[in-house]
């Protein structure tokens, strides 16, 4: 009781801070200098139609690299944390078989979902979406598989290889940017092509695709680890 009350008091204070921010907030009427630059220059410098993708992969690519590493770390640590109690191949509790609707539905939907995911990250530079979104969709397909058959295991080795290769490609493209273009993660190592084509925007689709695969692999790995835990 006392605790809730004191928490309320604290949050009132925080709320006051937020209210001050909210009341002082005036939306811009024109783009600020950074946004304006992106609006004007994205097409000519990066060749990407999706400005957000250009920002994420090229202009602020270092952030994305960090973000990808965050996921990598999370997956690795989840594996570390759960591995110490995890016993592979142990007799699991027999589950009742999944309903027929679910099983058929899984078989129907999973390829479609995978297709959607791949589409999203391949077209990341043209339409809303990109590697992370596509990867998440891929992972949701994996989740559906797991829900359909909880005893299913994924090959951790395959996941690890996909993760590592994707990461290395990302970093490798970045290094290529240092040697062959303006700087680290400059996407002009590959030709920019014409705006709106699938094969345009230099290295962005390549990077984004591998990011998508990496994210999908990492989410799947996390899901697999969490699913593989014993019932307590």
């Amino acid at each position: 009781m006392v605790k809730s009350f004191s928490v309320l008091v604290l949050l009132l204070g925080i709320g006051a801070m937020f209210a001050a921010l909210l009341l002082g907030y005036v939306p811009d009427s024109e783009l600020n200098q950074t946004a304006r630059y992106y609006a004007d220059k994205t097409a000519s410098e990066t060749g990407a139609a999706n400005i957000v993708a250009a920002i994420v992969v090229t202009y602020r690519g270092l952030d994305t690299l960090g973000e990808v590493t965050v996921l990598f770390l999370s997956a690795a640590i989840v594996g570390l944390v759960l591995a110490s109690g995890h016993q592979q191949g142990k007799m699991r509790h027999a589950q009742p078989p999944s309903g027929e609707l679910l099983v058929i539905g899984v078989r129907l939907l999973v390829p479609l979902i995978l297709l959607l995911g791949v589409y999203v990250f391949i077209n990341g530079h043209l339409t809303p979406g990109g590697g992370f979104q596509g990867g998440a969709i891929l992972a949701s397909a994996m989740l559906l598989l797991l829900l359909g058959d909880p005893l299913r295991t994924f090959s951790h080795k395959l996941i690890a290889i996909v993760e590592s290769i994707s990461g290395l490609v990302f970093v490798g493209m970045g290094i290529l940017g240092i040697f062959y273009a303006g700087g680290f993660l400059d996407n002009r190592v590959l030709p920019l092509g014409t705006l709106g084509e699938v094969f345009s925007a230099g290295a962005i689709p390549i990077i984004y695709s591998f990011v998508g695969l990496k994210v999908g692999a990492e989410f799947s790995s996390m899901l697999a680890n969490l699913s593989g835990t014993e019932e307590l």
Binding site: D28, L31, N32, T34, A35, R36, Y38, A39, D40, T42, A43, I51, V52, I55, V56, R60, D63, T64, G66, E67, G130, F132
Partner: peptide, 16 residues
């Protein structure tokens, strides 16, 4: 583009 689009930077930030 400069007159028609919203600020893309927060969208990139929120992704991360």
């Amino acid at each position: 583009a400069a007159a028609r689009i919203i600020d893309p930077v927060p969208q990139a930030l929120v992704l991360t």
